[in-house]
Nucleic acid binder design. Structure first.
Lengths: 335, 335
DNA sequence: GGGGGTCGTCGAAGCGCTTCGACGAACGAT
DNA sequence: ATCGTTCGTCGAAGCGCTTCGACGACCCCC
């Protein structure tokens, strides 16, 4: 592996000049620059990342903390991750992958040992134990999600409360008055997962504002969970004409269940999903849905981190507005 | 951030002694070690990763290259990734996430700049353009998959040829003679994806050995693709009594399709899937399947990398034997 | 035509760690 | 007692890069 000294010698300049060619931090004459660049190309020189980090205190690496639980939506996580990696590369950064199960100590390890310049943390809970630790780090951090107390930490996410309101507005506009929310599994609520609570709160509030008759029900995974959930809904809110489904895994069995009960969509019951676009499109009937824009959120997280890294100011909480797209799962109730 | 010098001062020893306490590369008296460790704990010292990498030429970081295509099985990839990260951590390594779309240059970038000690590359194709580049790197590499010419590179994977044979043996044992393979989408074959070809070859060979009447058919994603695939199969191999499905995405629509055509599983038609265990279990009927042990393969990849890193020898191709587990989707044909 | 700037380049220091050689002390064997 | 070892520790060199201050050369303006 050639070093910067080899390049300098080959180009007949000093190592510092090579460095300045690379960084552009000082003016270098066109001829010199050309010679240096030729030498770099010829020798196949790549600066040593460790040496660079040591000298400049910059690693050009971001940490990305992903959950690896199974009850959480794998494709969504994957979309976030690829969005983050792709966006990071456009800013000349690489991504170090951490799993949530290392908890606080994992964050501290990579931060204290200066392996990364900044962190992006997914799957945030309401009273996330990692938050106090994150506040103490010298590296900037961006959360994907919204903890109970976001003070001192920058957060980005979809505006789930607005998303909930959006689904209800749409259904109300179609004329629905009795609407049930099929939520995530109870374990998600139990963990205090941020997006679940925000969606629930938005749903309840919008329901009151619109004067609707609604109920909410978590939904265990699997056929059995869905069956039970639907039964409870029918018992508690008889004559329900629309379902808002904020549970990607339940979606499929739920549609199956409705079909085998002879309830047609949208003739007998309307459904609005909250899920990634491709999931909504991959169902037997294309579902009217509020998109979960993993890609945008991931990209925004990276942009925000970059802003923080070069000291620019940024708002501390940034919630993306939801967009509902109409497909084929909503109609006016038969009445 | 305290440095090794701060620790040395606090413990009343020289920096090199602290280093030897950390690395254990020279004997240190119990008292000294205790004092040093106390100082480390008190100051919250973490060695600077860059400095360490520079001095020792070891980064304790692995690169993991994942595909980010959409036609490829997201949950499987995610399982690989988490298995790799988890296993890497047990060896005190972290994982840098690269996407396949950076191609050869991404590999060269992280390798030449000494960001990683070794690489693990997923989603290998038969004539993968990255292979020659990988051979040239000074860092050891482990492929998950099997290229056409694996010379000079270590590979680990499930033995897909054996897996195919296993499915046929099982179905033959049940008395099936007419069996069709529902394969991955044509684009997967077109790309020369290693596992698809190996499964196909194993299927064809075992079919001949067992004297079965079989056919194979790729399957486009989506309901339409499945419908077409089934129609072709019925046309080409009338009276087919069993299906081997090597296409995770097609699985669900395929079952739907069979059901709505009034073909019961396993009474009218048997199905063996090749997919991760949880996918097989998540279907309306628990499917008899050959497990794709992402977790084991990921773990094995890391173990292999570690072996290479400390100079131990390792076989150049390691294929895990498949295991078929019986569930409820196979029975003897009505005859 | 001399003073003040800017431009382009160099040299040296230093980032925080590992590692090698050296060296005194302690110890067992003769 | 003496010599050779092993044990435990230290000092210094160096890993490859960035960055700061310095310094000619050159240009512009009064």
């Amino acid at each position: 592996m050639p070093t910067i000294n080899d390049v300098a010698r080959a180009a007949g300049v000093s190592p510092s000049t090579v460095s300045y060619v690379l960084s552009g931090r000082r003016p270098i004459s066109a001829q010199t620059r050309a010679r240096v660049q030729a030498a770099i190309a010829e020798l196949g020189f790549h600066p040593h990342a460790g040496a660079r980090a040591l000298a400049s205190s910059k690693t050009n690496v971001l940490a990305l903390v992903v959950p690896l639980r199974v009850d959480v939506n794998v494709p969504v996580i994957m979309q976030f991750a690829t969005a983050v990696v792709t966006a990071a590369r456009t800013h000349n950064h690489d991504v170090l992958l951490l799993t949530k199960d290392e908890g606080t100590s994992g964050l501290e390890r990579v931060a204290h040992s200066t392996m990364v310049d900044a962190l992006i943390v997914m799957d945030v809970e309401k009273d996330d134990v990692r938050i106090p630790a994150l506040r103490r780090l010298k590296q900037p951090t961006v959360l994907i999600g919204l903890p109970g107390d976001p003070a001192g930490i920058v957060c980005v996410d979809l505006d789930f409360a607005a998303a909930a309101a959006e689904t209800l507005r749409h259904l109300a506009w179609h004329g629905h008055r009795k609407i049930a929310l099929v939520g995530p599994s109870p374990s998600v609520y139990r963990r205090g997962t941020s997006y679940a609570e925000r969606f629930l709160a938005g749903f309840t509030e919008a329901s009151a504002e619109l004067g609707l008759e609604t109920m909410t029900h978590p939904c265990e995974p699997g056929q059995a969970g869905v069956r039970e959930c639907l039964a409870d809904i029918d018992a508690e809110l008889p004559g329900v004409t629309a379902l808002v489904v904020h549970n990607e895994e339940a979606l499929r069995p739920l549609l199956d269940q409705l079909r085998s009960a002879g309830r047609r969509i949208p003739e007998d019951i309307s459904v609005v999903a909250v899920c990634p676009r491709d999931v909504a499109l991959g169902m037997p009937i294309p579902l009217t849905s509020v998109d979960i824009p993993s890609h945008d959120v991931g990209g925004l997280a990276v942009e925000t981190v970059m802003k923080l890294l070069d000291g620019r100011h940024t708002e501390s909480v940034r919630l993306l507005p939801p967009t509902l797209v109409e497909r084929e799962s909503c109609a006016s109730p038969a009445s």
